[in-house]
Structure formats: C-alpha cells, structure tokens
C-alpha cells in the first residue's frame, strides 16, 4: 500500500467540513487510525461534523505541529509507527499546514513535496486543506505541484504534479536572512577547530543570556555541520556567526559539491551507521536550516531562536 497524498482547495468552511468529516468518519468505520491536524478555528466545526466519531479522531493544533518541516516529518513517523504498533492497519490524516511568514512559504512547500518520497510506502491517506481566503495564490498554486491528487471542485489527478526530486532541486530552501557582515568568522581546519567554534558560540550565547539548555542543540548542530564540511567539503572552510538578542545564526561554507540527494535531511536515518544522521538531527533541531550550492560554494546556514 502506498500513501495517497491529496490537496483540498477550498474557500468556505462548510465545504471544509463537508469533505473532511466524511473522510475521517469512513476511516474510523474501517478501523483506521484517524488524525486531524487543523487550526483551532476548524477543530470545533470538524468535531461537530463528525458527531460521535469525533471521539475516535485524534485532534492536534496545527500551530503546535507545523513548527519546523523536519520535526513535523519526525512527528508523522512517530505517530504512524505508534498507530501501527497499536494494531491499526492504516492511517487517515487531515493536515492543514501552517505556512507561516512569507519567507518560509517555500520551506513548507518543499516539505509537502518531500512527504511523497519519505512516506511513499506508508499505509495511509492524507488530505491537506488549502484555504484560498488565507493563503497567497502562489502557495495554493504550488499545492498542485506537490500533491498527486487535488480536490478543487472535483477530485482529479494533478497534471502539474512534480516528483520530489525535481521540485526540491528547482525550489531552493530560502536562506535565513542575515546582515552583510558576520559578528565572527572562523576558519575550520581540523576537528579541534570545531571545538574552538563551539567555545566561541557558547561564549556568544552566554553573553546574550542564553542558558546551557538553550544553547546545547545549537552546539550539536554546529559540530555536525562543521564536521560534514571537513569530511565531505573541499578548499577553504569557514564558519560565520551572527548574533541578535533572540537568535543566533551560523553559516558553514566550503568549496564542496553540495548534496547529491535533495531529500537528505528529510528522510529519517535507517540505522545509526547510515549516512545523514547528523544532517537529520541538524534539521530537527534548527529553527531554520538551508543548504545552498551556488557559484562553486556550498553554504549551510542555520538559525536558532530563543
């Protein structure tokens, strides 16, 4: 069984409930696990539409669920694994993505595309509602590129659908914006220079008043990205650091070829020895992580906010 991944394009709440309540109710009747990740203002009407079946559906607030694309993928992995462990054969999902600020729209469109690959063999059916009253036209249009099936008036295969490998290459993850001059620039020459970079960032965070717990994830990501650069990159490796009161942004640059697999960092690692555990964790922990390969330079920029 493969994942059915559909988009629902809608412009009124009655239509939202009219499509999704029967969809989830049917899942309940078929003894499938049913999950609705929706904004608070949609939870009430959807519960009402489901009637008694609402008790069998797990509701999650979308603002809590859609914080970072990679951790949302990890969340789905855990949720599906849990459902299967409890004896469900399949999962029905309503997932209304919180696209957030405009600068992150492409991040979430890339996430929607990656789902088709990461969960290709997942026994489930997911419908992602797109509210045309709230979302920009470009975001809604991109839903046709990231969902094999679209319900817009009628249910039909999307002729504009693109394979994840193609879309992720065509649509770059936007880089977290920074000022032109970093606060600190360090050269990465060997593993001990990675330790020095950690010390520097720890000192910066300390001066900003961040406690140890807040900075430990950042130090881990710095280590993993810097080591990836030392091991896989080429030429002059540097780390740049920007600090603001509520965020620290770092960037590791080298002359490497960049990632061969555009889905690296989205797929959960198969085992501890498989490549990509560090990048997976970096994606999990960072508030914003972007990898760019341009003009012969590979650039990984990541931001942690307090």
């Amino acid at each position: 069984m493969a994942l059915l991944h559909e988009a629902l394009i809608y412009d009124d709440d009655e239509k939202f409930v009219a499509v999704l309540a029967p969809f989830l109710a049917e899942g309940v009747r078929r003894r499938e696990a049913a999950v609705a990740v929706v904004p608070e203002h949609h939870a009430g009407p959807l519960r009402e539409g489901l009637g008694a079946d609402a008790d069998e559906v797990r509701f999650i607030e979308s603002a809590d669920w859609y914080r970072r694309p990679a951790s949302t993928i990890a969340g789905w992995s855990g949720l599906v694994a849990d459902a299967i462990e409890r004896g469900y054969s399949s999962v029905r999902i309503v997932g209304e993505v919180e696209f957030g600020a405009g600068e992150r729209h492409d991040s979430w469109t890339r996430y929607e595309s990656a789902l088709n690959d990461v969960f290709a063999t997942l026994p489930g059916w997911a419908i992602c509602p797109y509210d045309t009253r709230r979302l920009p036209g470009r975001v809604v249009a991109d839903a046709l590129r990231t969902h094999p099936v679209v319900r817009a008036g009628r249910r039909a295969p999307s002729e504009l659908y693109e394979e994840p490998d193609d879309l992720l290459r065509a649509m770059a993850e936007p880089l977290p914006p920074v000022s032109p001059v970093p606060l600190v620039a360090l050269r990465l020459t060997d593993p001990l220079s990675v330790r020095r970079a950690r010390r520097t960032i720890e000192a910066i965070a300390h001066n900003l008043g961040w406690d140890r717990a807040a900075v430990s994830g950042l130090l881990l990501v710095v280590s993993e990205i810097a080591l990836n650069s030392l091991i896989h990159g080429r030429g002059d490796r540097r780390i740049h650091i920007w600090a603001e009161q509520s965020s620290i942004t770092c960037e590791v640059i080298d002359d490497g070829d960049g990632l061969a697999d555009p889905l690296a960092g989205y797929r959960p690692p198969e085992n501890p020895r498989s490549a990509g555990v560090g990048l997976w964790l970096a994606n999990q922990l960072s508030d914003w992580l972007s990898i760019e390969h341009r003009d012969g330079a590979n650039r990984v920029r990541f931001r942690f906010s307090r």
Binding site: A74, A213, G217, L220, P268, P269, N271, P272, L281, Q284
Partner: peptide, 17 residues
C-alpha cells in the same frame, strides 16, 4: 545528559542499540 537523549530519541536508536 539531555543532548545524549536528544540524539537517541531523534535518531530512534533504542532499537539499534
């Protein structure tokens, strides 16, 4: 420490180790 737990949980290593 929390960081070790974070790695263990995020990478789902309990089954592997």
């Amino acid at each position: 420490p929390p960081l070790l737990r974070e790695i263990w949980d995020s990478a789902t290593w309990s089954a592997s180790f």
